[in-house]
Amino acid sequence: MTKPRITRIVAATAATLALLVGAIGLLHTPLGKPWLMKIGGCPIDESPASAEKSRVKTVRVERGTEVAPAHAALGFQLETLDREGVRAWASDNSVQCTEKREATFFACKHVSAAALHRSTGADEVDFTFRPGDRKLVSVTTYRFGLSVAEARSGFDTATVSLARDLGEAHTRRDTESLAAPYATASLAYRYRDLLVDVTATNLPGKGVGLMESYVSAVD
């Protein structure tokens, strides 16, 4: 290869690089984001380290003082179970999970009641793992479009199951009926090492949404 040719290749590479860095930078600014999304998008996502930092920051604010008597989240042991354990559960129960963020976040869809040891299944179950030791640090489930009766049953089942595992809820605010728009029932535990929230809320036109969230409050 001749010297001028190498120089031309180096110059072309440098120019392409400079252009691309500029373009990618621009696409990530507020002005560029709509274009970025149009071309398929950089997934709006965060790095595993940043997700973990965000969890730790939040749990430090929300956690209580007592140690939780148990750490099971719908049968999944927080701080004990790892990715292999969740993969095995998914495979045993024919659950489809998408692994993201370097396999520190599993999003599993259409999970059956049996797989969750509950009377109803879930539209979505999300699992997150600590990037360092890969242990399970949160489990979140959502069910949407429920009837008032289904949501009431789901909320009551969670209440009974949590009372059995953890005792009396730290905060429990129920509602006479979940039938009214935005009528909400909420249940929360705030331990030093575990945060639990269960919420049922009537989303007008979309049925009742039911969320269960279990987050390890360990740093």
Partner: peptide, 15 residues
């Protein structure tokens, strides 16, 4: 630029 945060069986959705 785009992949540092996502991996696995399918990619996360864009809008």
């Amino acid at each position: 630029a785009c992949s540092s945060t996502s991996s696995g069986t399918t990619s996360s959705s864009g809008g």
